[in-house]
């Protein structure tokens, strides 16, 4: 039975990865550093041999709650409260975004889309596996190997016409 659970976690992780990377790239995170702190992280990533636009992406995730935070918090609230929890999470993520001097398009739209996906997939994959999947997805970008992750993010940004 453990094998089935691990397969569910991996599939949920792939869905969450596609969700937050595509939404963040579409709303222009790799294009420019939104706040001053993201600039220094991007230049640091460039110094160790990565891509500068991937570095801006990582810095913007650290400095304000974007679609990654929206995905995690909406899956937590929909595990605890059902569909209404996702809407409450979208409201609170918008307030957090405005506190960090960010327009807040990416966070709320990411939260609403993951709520819809969890509601559609709930007979097959429960919301508990999406939490672990989101942690696994953020681990592959922020925690595993910064150089290659930033090169991959830069290629995706170039393909979607955001940044160079």
């Amino acid at each position: 039975m453990e094998i089935v659970e691990i397969i569910k976690v991996v599939v949920a992780g792939i869905i969450c990865w596609l969700n937050f990377v595509l939404i963040d790239t579409y709303f222009g995170l790799p294009e420019k550093p939104g706040v001053l702190g993201a600039k220094t992280i991007g230049e640091k990533i460039r110094d160790i041999g990565g891509n500068i636009h991937g570095g801006y992406f990582m810095g913007n995730i650290v400095c304000s709650p974007d679609a990654s935070a929206g995905t995690l918090l909406a899956s937590i609230m929909s595990y605890l409260m059902g569909v209404e929890g996702g809407i409450i999470a979208a409201l609170l993520v918008w307030i957090g975004n405005r506190l960090c001097a960010d327009p807040g398009y990416a966070g709320t739209i990411g939260a609403l889309t993951i709520t819809a996906i969890i509601y559609l997939l709930s007979p097959i994959i429960e919301a508990k596996y999406f939490i672990a999947g989101m942690v696994l997805a953020i681990f592959t970008i922020q925690g595993f190997e910064h150089k290659y992750a930033s090169i991959l993010l830069g290629k995706i940004a170039k393909k979607m016409n955001r940044g160079e």
């Binding site: 979208a90 398009y105 609403l112």
Partner: peptide, 28 residues
């Protein structure tokens, strides 16, 4: 323009989400 960097609030983007979220909190 472009819309994705502007801080101005409008009818389409934050208003329906804020209303639905406050209604969900009140109902619970």
């Amino acid at each position: 323009k472009p819309v994705r960097f502007s801080f101005q609030t409008s009818i389409i983007f934050p208003t329906p989400i804020l209303a639905l979220g406050i209604e969900a909190i009140f109902r619970n």
